[in-house]
Design a protein around this nucleic acid. Structure first.
Lengths: 202, 202, 202, 202
DNA sequence: AATGAATGAGTCTTCATTCAT
DNA sequence: AATGAATGAAGACTCATTCAT
């Protein structure tokens, strides 16, 4: 096994163990046992326990960033909606395809270390920024109202996080994820109100 | 200082340190240094590090539970809305008043220990259940549509969590919190769409 | 309760606890809980954990010493034997009547502390000395052979100790103890007797 | 130093320290100081303080078990006696050669822990059983009387124990040990012998 | 490159003893 | 005399990291 292959093998194993036991409960011993390498070998590839965790996080964040695509301001409202739905769905798909990292990010990655927290915070702010940008586009197109967009962006992020944490477990099914993405759009686009009553709002 | 006062003094100090450094990074030494007591004294009041953290968590959860009040199904829609806003605001007020515990629960409390995680999960499920119950009431009153209520409940929880994690920092101001509560209601009740366009939704 | 009564009450309780849990596993907390007194009160009556244990040991040793009575060199061989049997039996009786202390001395009292070990060693040497003196009397009377008396004395002590440690459990019955005393005499007498007198044994 | 050598080096050191200070008074720090290793290294070879003590005990018990050999019921009474003497002497030799473990077992090993006590008790019962079996052989051969064999077995065990605890200190000399073994046989044989055969003793 | 033995700082927890009330 | 809160030294054990082979 060459350097690169071994490196990524160890990363895989670490991800599995971290996802299973959490950061603190995972020891270097766990990782090298899973990877079938010697103690010293681990430090040949990674500087420290923190470093390998860091790297897992970075890779995961990058993949998520890749899911979000700039919305093309087509004239057709439906086409815009579809792009938004597609963005959400790509994220749900990715998270579902890497449940270990999802679990790590949602449940284990906070409160470990000031540097980790900073990185995580940066990531989330970036996500929120991108959501806000998308919403801004909708505003410009006259599709969305002008106020409360920051709160909305936070809510959308929170909704995705809760969905993955505590949502229905049938998410291995891609259609369930599509359905969820559509439902999210429906919720945030149109709200919960009975359509007939919508106009009484202040 | 009598037993009760000292006990709550130690709890306060522990909360401060946990909030600052996180559960794992906090050692008993940190707590007793902050509290100005001897090592043995700590164990006179608390069985273990876990126990004091547990107690902090329990107390906080209880206070949050106390914030949520059953909505009275008044005939007047506005009155219902006001009750919902009041619920959200009470929660925001509490969380703002105890930022250390808020930080602990949001950022540090997961992934510590199977028991803690269970407790936290139970708490969140309870909250989601209460939100769903409130929404169900709205459905029965004909105010809200019938579908997607679970996703909505998760989103509302997620929204509050993100708001406290990453929301505007001006939350020491009670009016800012009131404003946020109103805005949340507006968002979830009516959605983001430009009111004129609402009816084009599928 | 006056000073003296309380003191001996605490001693009793300590004996019970030490006998039950052993010296190291017994904490001051155990003792004061059993005695129903406060922590500080314990130290009003005893200097330290060691001190109360010491005192228990001393009292017990004294009582055992009191069991052993100088053998009167009667002309009648049978009378001598009876005195020896009576000595052994008194010891067995005492040990049976205070099983806690017996257990402590046999199983817990060694290896605690150089001073304790010294005290215990002194006690056992004294016992061995007394047994040797008795045997010496038998030698002088022409009843016993002249050699190997030290080994014999050690064996008799060892026999009693093993009997109490690992012997039949029916020792609550005084007759069983009498029987054992007689049997011990038979065993050691025949081994020690002046060969010419051996055949007079029962 | 390779793994095996280091392991047995640590065992040796631990035996020395335990023998000197007793189980409770010995800390891991004492052992590693004696062995010249780091704290963590100790735990590389042994799971816990209990574990290393356990291992010392087990090894010692095994060696003692190895000393006791089944008596061959030769026709020649003297040959039987010689075998018995040889058994006793092998035990005395072993105990003399490992005075630290002897001290530990006799003075320190009881009252430490329920599991240790059980192990020790099992060991002693096994020994007593083997002595009784030997005596039973003598009974079958018509050499010994039929009664009191359990007390006799306990006495023989007790005798050996006292001999090693409080016996003459000249036991480094193998001849002194031989002499003692012979003397023990003389004492107990005469006590146990079938009265008809008593006079054949030397 | 790979190994795995060695390290030692750091953690939680216990408990005999003291001392202010 | 009695109390019981407070003390802090000491102990067992863990584990990320280093380094000689």
């Amino acid at each position: 096994m060459d350097r690169v292959a071994r490196r990524s093998h160890v990363l895989d194993c670490a991800r599995r163990v971290f996802g299973h036991k959490g950061y603190h409960a995972t020891s270097i011993s766990d990782i090298i046992k899973e990877a079938g390498i010697a103690r010293g070998t681990f430090y040949l590839y990674f500087d420290a326990k923190r470093a390998i965790f860091d790297e897992l996080l970075d890779g995961f964040f990058q993949r998520i960033d890749g899911c979000i695509q700039r919305v093309d301001p087509a004239k057709d409202t439906v086409a815009v909606m579809q792009q938004l739905i597609a963005n959400v769905q790509r994220i749900l798909d990715l998270l579902s395809s890497d449940q270990e990292m999802t679990r790590i990010v949602l449940h284990e990655a906070e409160g470990l270390d000031a540097r980790f927290d900073q990185k995580l915070d940066d990531f989330y702010r970036r996500i929120v920024g991108q959501i806000e940008a998308s919403l801004g586009l909708g505003v410009e197109m006259g599709l969305l109202r002008r106020t409360g967009m920051h709160l909305a962006a936070l809510s959308i992020l929170g909704a995705i996080k809760e969905l993955m944490s505590r949502g229905p477990s049938g998410f291995e099914n891609p259609e369930a994820r599509h359905e969820a993405a559509v439902e999210m759009l429906r919720l945030f686009w149109a709200g919960l109100a009975n359509p007939d009553l919508n106009r009484m709002l202040p």
